[in-house]
């Protein structure tokens, strides 16, 4: 009996833990949106300066690495599509293949994974070390709601910057693909890009962007909720940081698949 009981108990505890985690994240989301709307009336204004600072950290500072990865992924897609489509003598289809796969999938996915690693972990580490050193309590007793001060600006910044970064990554990746594929197709890179533009529909771009909005929510909420639940000093902060990155990347990939399934049915 007890041999069966223990794993069952473990499973039950893990389930309750997971559900309460989701509930906590949802509460943080609702609270931060509430402060964005009603904060001024409650004396808990979400500061524009704080949002702008977060936008710089999440968005602008990530531009070089997003450009590098976007370009590399574009190049890689160009190489693969040329090689595999050549088997059917269909190299010319590489333009549409790259355009659609980048805008629908890879732009949003690569950007989200990158930002989860850069900013999701930073959020978890920052809030985690703040709760360990009682800074979160200090904010609360000063009369600054920690959710309003720490979560809301990051959430808004992420919701704006992740789609912007995604568009940027899309553009860079397609340019990367153009640089490799255009010579192989005997066209100029600018002709390649013009053809890409004529083949793309707004729906393709929207598909990527709508995903990136969901990814933004995931990255922020997982980052801040693991940060707030840190216990156990510096070691706990380290564990929370790792957990935030791993969890966000898992969720991003799973949600991406689910999204693609429903959109393309």
């Amino acid at each position: 009996m007890s041999a069966l009981e223990r794993p069952l108990q473990g499973l039950g505890r893990a389930t309750i833990g997971a559900i309460s985690g989701v509930g906590y994240a949802a509460m943080l989301l609702v609270e931060s949106l509430y402060y964005c709307v009603a904060g001024r009336r409650l004396g808990q204004r979400v500061r524009l300066a704080a949002i702008v600072r977060q936008m710089r950290e999440i968005g602008v500072d990530a531009l070089p690495i997003v450009a590098l990865l976007g370009f590399t992924v574009g190049l890689m897609l160009g190489i693969q599509f040329i090689a595999s489509l050549a088997e059917f003598g269909a190299q010319s289809q590489v333009v549409v293949a790259v355009a659609k796969s980048v805008t629908r999938e890879f732009g949003a996915l690569i950007t989200a994974i990158l930002v989860a690693g850069r900013s999701g972990s930073a959020l978890a580490a920052r809030i985690g070390s703040m709760s360990v050193s009682q800074e979160v309590d200090a904010l609360a007793v000063i009369g600054i709601e920690p959710v309003r001060y720490l979560v809301a600006p990051a959430l808004i910044a992420m919701l704006v910057m992740l789609p912007v970064l995604t568009i940027f990554a899309n553009a860079v990746a397609i340019i990367g693909a153009a640089l490799y594929s255009a010579p192989a197709l005997n066209v100029t890179p600018s002709a390649y890009l013009l053809q890409t533009l004529s083949l793309l529909t707004p729906g393709d771009v929207w598909q990527g962007l709508s995903k990136s909005v969901v990814f933004a929510l995931l990255i922020t909420l997982i980052g801040v909720s693991t940060g707030f639940s840190v216990t156990g000093g510096a070691e706990g902060v380290g564990r929370a940081t790792t957990r935030a990155v791993v969890l966000s990347i898992c969720w991003i990939i799973v949600v991406d698949m689910v999204f693609s399934f429903f959109i393309n049915r």
Binding site: R126, M130, Q134, E135, D137, A138, L139
Partner: peptide, 9 residues
């Protein structure tokens, strides 16, 4: 607070 809890940033 005991440890000061100044915001380190």
């Amino acid at each position: 607070f005991q440890g000061g809890a100044l915001l380190t940033s």
